[in-house]
Computed example of a mutant assay.
Amino acid sequence: MTDIHPNQRVAVLADAQNLYHSAQSLYSRNIDYSKLLEKGVQGRELTRAIAYVIRADSPEEESFFDALVDIGFETKIKNIKTFGDGSKKADWDVGMSLDAVTLANHVDTVVLCTGDGDFSRLCSHLRHEGVRVEVMGFSESTADELVEAADSFLDLSERSKTFLL
């Protein structure tokens, strides 16, 4: 696979739920999305930056969604589902995967900002299609199979001062 060069077209796909829970459980802090996007792009040509977020009706979330847009992310918002037994579910795995596969024909590199091992099969597929796959996540909460399936892995924990607010 190719290395990084300035003419590469890049899509950055951020799994906001996964990043949020990892940053909270490991550091009790939030992600600096402008730094995340800057490092994901690394001076290359940004084609799309999409943040996948869940609306859970918490008071500060609308300002967070607005901040993501100001930074340069498109936001895809899904409402949390509450089931009869009180359990809640919302994830973007299928949506993120479909977007990545759709974007594969238009980019050279897909940067997945997540630690979710469910994306390892997606990485293998994208690489088979000739797309470079880079993963950014916290090593403590990133599945080994995801790291192994990607072309590169950037450990946000090693640079927590950069990537956390």
Rank of each mutant, 00 (worst) to 15 (best):
G130F: 03
I4T: 10
D70T: 04
S87R: 15
T142Y: 01
L164E: 05
L154Q: 10
P59F: 14
E158C: 08
S34E: 14
A143Q: 07
N18D: 03
D66C: 03
S28C: 05
M1C: 11
Y20G: 09
I54K: 08
S25W: 00
S157D: 12
Y33M: 03
E148L: 13
P59V: 13
S152Y: 02
L164H: 12
S34C: 03
D85T: 15
L37E: 00
I50Q: 08
T142F: 04
L103Q: 10
M1D: 11
V147W: 03
Y52R: 11
L165Y: 06
Y27E: 08
L103A: 08
S87W: 01
A90R: 12
L98R: 05
A23Q: 01
A90G: 15
I50T: 12
L68P: 00
V69W: 06
M96D: 09
P59A: 15
H106A: 14
F83D: 12
E38M: 10
D108G: 11
S139E: 09
R44H: 02
T47H: 15
A149I: 09
S124H: 06
A150C: 09
T2W: 01
D70A: 08
R121A: 13
T2G: 10
K35H: 06
L98W: 00
V131W: 09
N7I: 01
E61F: 03
P59Q: 13
D66S: 10
R9Q: 11
A23F: 02
A51K: 00
L122T: 09
K161H: 11
I31F: 05
I54F: 04
R121Q: 11
T109N: 15
T102P: 00
F64L: 04
A56H: 12
R121M: 11
